Simulated scan of single mutants.
Amino acid sequence: MNWADAAPLRVLGIESSCDETGIALVELPGGVRGAQPVRLLAHALHSQIDMHQAYGGVVPELASRDHIRRVVPLLRQTMTEAGHALASIDVVAYTRGPGLAGALLVGAGMACALGMALGKPVLGVHHLEGHLLSPFLSADPPQFPFIALLVSGGHTQLMRVDGVGAYTLLGETIDDAAGEAFDKTAKMLDLGYPGGPALSKLAEQGDPTAFKLPRPLLRGDNIDFSFAGLKTAVWMQQQRLVAAGTMTEQARADLAASTQAAIVDVLVAKSLLALKASGLKRMVVAGGVGANRRLRQQLDAQCAKRGVRVHYPELHLCTDNGAMIALAAAMRLQAGRAEPSLAYHFDVKPRWDLGAI
Rank of each mutant, 00 (worst) to 15 (best):
M1D: 13
N2E: 15
W3E: 06
R10M: 14
G13W: 00
T21L: 11
T21I: 04
A24N: 02
L28W: 07
P29D: 05
P29I: 03
P29Y: 06
G31K: 06
V32A: 07
R39C: 11
A42Q: 12
L45R: 14
A54L: 11
Y55C: 08
G56W: 06
L62V: 06
H67D: 09
V72S: 03
P73M: 05
L74G: 11
L75P: 03
R76T: 13
R76C: 04
T80V: 12
E81I: 02
L100I: 12
L105R: 14
L105N: 12
V106G: 08
M110H: 12
A113C: 11
A113G: 15
P121N: 02
V125M: 01
L128Q: 03
L132Q: 00
L133N: 00
P135I: 00
L137T: 04
P142E: 07
F146W: 08
I147E: 05
A148I: 02
L149P: 09
L150S: 00
V151T: 09
G153S: 07
L158P: 10
D162N: 15
V164H: 06
A166N: 13
E172R: 15
D183P: 07
T185Y: 05
A186G: 14
M188K: 09
Y193V: 04
L199K: 05
L199I: 12
K201H: 13
A203Y: 08
P216H: 02
G220N: 12
I223L: 15
I223F: 12
S226P: 13
S226M: 10
S226G: 05
A228K: 08
G229P: 05
K231C: 10
T232D: 12
A233D: 06
Q237P: 05
Q238E: 14
Q239T: 05
Q239A: 11
R240M: 11
A243G: 10
A244G: 14
T246E: 15
M247D: 11
E249C: 00
A251W: 09
D254T: 04
L255S: 03
L255R: 07
A256R: 12
A256D: 08
Q260M: 10
A262N: 05
A262S: 14
D265M: 01
V266P: 03
L267I: 04
A269H: 13
L272R: 05
A274I: 08
S278Q: 09
V284I: 05
G287F: 01
G290F: 01
R296E: 10
Q298M: 11
D300A: 14
A301R: 14
K305D: 14
L315R: 15
A323S: 02
A330I: 00
G336S: 03
K349C: 07
K349M: 11
R351E: 08
D353G: 08
D353C: 10
D353T: 06
